[in-house]
Amino acid sequence: EPEARKIVEKLINNGLSPEDVKRWAEKNNNPEVKKAAEEYQKR
């Protein structure tokens, strides 16, 4: 999901860690963003 990846990169560029992004995604019920954050961590 390229859109989710863009969101993850934007949040990380704004100073969030991938863990923060995953928590944000869970709080906002956004499994695509959570998955993208996990993939981002593996890179």
Rank of each mutant, 00 (worst) to 15 (best):
V33N: 01
A25F: 02
G15N: 03
A25R: 01
E19A: 08
K6P: 03
N29L: 06
V8A: 05
E26Y: 04
E1R: 11
K22Q: 10
L16G: 02
V21Y: 02
K10A: 14
K42D: 07
K10Y: 15
N13F: 11
P31R: 06
V21W: 03
N29F: 06
P31Y: 11
N29M: 07
K10G: 09
E9T: 07
G15Y: 02
P2R: 15
E19Y: 05
V8I: 06
A4Q: 02
Y40S: 01
E26G: 03
K10M: 15
L16T: 03
V33C: 03
E19M: 07
K42F: 09
K27E: 14
R43Y: 14
K6A: 14
I12Q: 02
K10Q: 14
A36L: 13
K34H: 11
V8E: 01
K27A: 13
N28Y: 11
R5K: 11
N14T: 11
L11S: 01
R43I: 11
N14H: 12
W24M: 02
K6D: 10
A36E: 08
W24F: 02
P18T: 08
G15S: 03
V33A: 04
R43G: 07
K6R: 14
E39F: 07
N28S: 08
K6H: 10
L16P: 00
A4D: 02
A36G: 02
P2I: 15
D20N: 04
I12C: 06
K42C: 11
R5V: 11
L16A: 07
E32R: 07
V8G: 00
K42W: 08
P2W: 15
V33G: 01
N14S: 15
E32P: 05
A4S: 06
A37K: 00
E3N: 12
N14V: 09
N14D: 14
E32G: 10
K42M: 12
K42L: 11
L11V: 00
I7L: 12
A25P: 00
W24G: 00
E9F: 08
R43T: 10
E32A: 14
V21M: 04
L16N: 04
V21F: 02
E38I: 11
R43M: 13
K34Q: 09
E19L: 07
W24P: 00
R5S: 10
N28R: 06
E32K: 07
S17L: 05
L11E: 01
D20C: 10
P2F: 15
D20I: 03
A37M: 10
E26D: 11
A4Y: 08
E32T: 09
R43A: 12
I7S: 02
A36P: 01
N13R: 14
N13D: 09
K6F: 09
A25E: 00
E3Q: 10
L16V: 06
E38C: 09
E19T: 06
R23D: 08
N29C: 11
E3K: 08
W24L: 02
E9D: 06
N13K: 14
G15A: 03
A4R: 02
E9H: 10
